[in-house]
Simulated assay, not measured.
Amino acid sequence: MKTPTFDAQIETLEAAVEAADAQTRVALQSKVHALVCEMRRQGVEVPAHLSHIDCELTDEAVEAQFDNLPV
């Protein structure tokens, strides 16, 4: 069961991620991940779509670390 506070945070972050460019999405990853961790810590079920967004942004953040490495 989600709480109203988490619902509002989820909606806000989802809207921000959807509207963000690639660089901003990477910056939002830590906020999304922190929310997922806090929900789990409190025993609140994390919605599947939020877990998917967290995984997707984590993958993007890892890829961004390698964008400027010389080959």
Rank of each mutant, 00 (worst) to 15 (best):
F6N: 12
L28W: 09
S51A: 08
A64C: 10
G43E: 07
D59C: 13
A61F: 08
I10K: 07
V44M: 08
S51H: 03
P70A: 04
E63N: 10
R25M: 13
A64V: 08
A19I: 05
I53T: 14
R41V: 07
L13R: 02
N68D: 15
V36D: 04
D21Q: 13
F66C: 07
P47E: 06
L35G: 04
Q23A: 15
I10R: 02
R25N: 13
E38W: 03
A34Q: 10
A19L: 10
A22R: 15
T3H: 07
A34G: 00
H52A: 15
F6V: 02
L57R: 04
L57K: 04
S30F: 00
Q65P: 03
A8I: 02
P47G: 14
K31E: 01
H33E: 15
E11H: 04
G43A: 11
E11K: 11
Q42E: 14
E18D: 12
Q65R: 15
P47Q: 08
L13E: 11
E63D: 15
G43S: 05
D7S: 11
S51N: 13
M39G: 05
Q65G: 06
L13K: 06
L57V: 06
H33L: 01
A34I: 01
D54R: 00
D59G: 15
E63T: 06
P47H: 11
E63A: 15
E11R: 11
C37E: 13
E45T: 12
T24P: 03
L35H: 10
P47R: 01
P47L: 02
L13Y: 11
K2F: 03
H33Y: 01
R40D: 09
S30M: 05
H33P: 00
P4S: 08
D7V: 06
D21V: 06
V46D: 10
V26F: 08
K31M: 07
D7Q: 12
E63G: 10
Q29K: 00
R41N: 10
K2D: 03
E38H: 06
A64H: 13
D54G: 01
A48D: 15
V32M: 09
M39D: 02
I53L: 15
E38I: 01
R41Y: 08
P47D: 06
S30G: 00
Q9M: 09
M39I: 03
L28D: 04
L13F: 07
A22T: 14
D67Q: 14
L35R: 06
V26C: 03
T58E: 13
M39V: 04
V71A: 12
L35E: 01
C55E: 14
E14W: 02
M1D: 09
A16T: 01
V17I: 11
S51L: 14
V32Q: 02
I53P: 01
N68Q: 14
E18Q: 14
L69E: 05
D54Q: 06
A19V: 09
V62W: 03
I10P: 03
M1C: 04
D54K: 00
Q23F: 05
F6S: 12
E45W: 00
C37R: 11
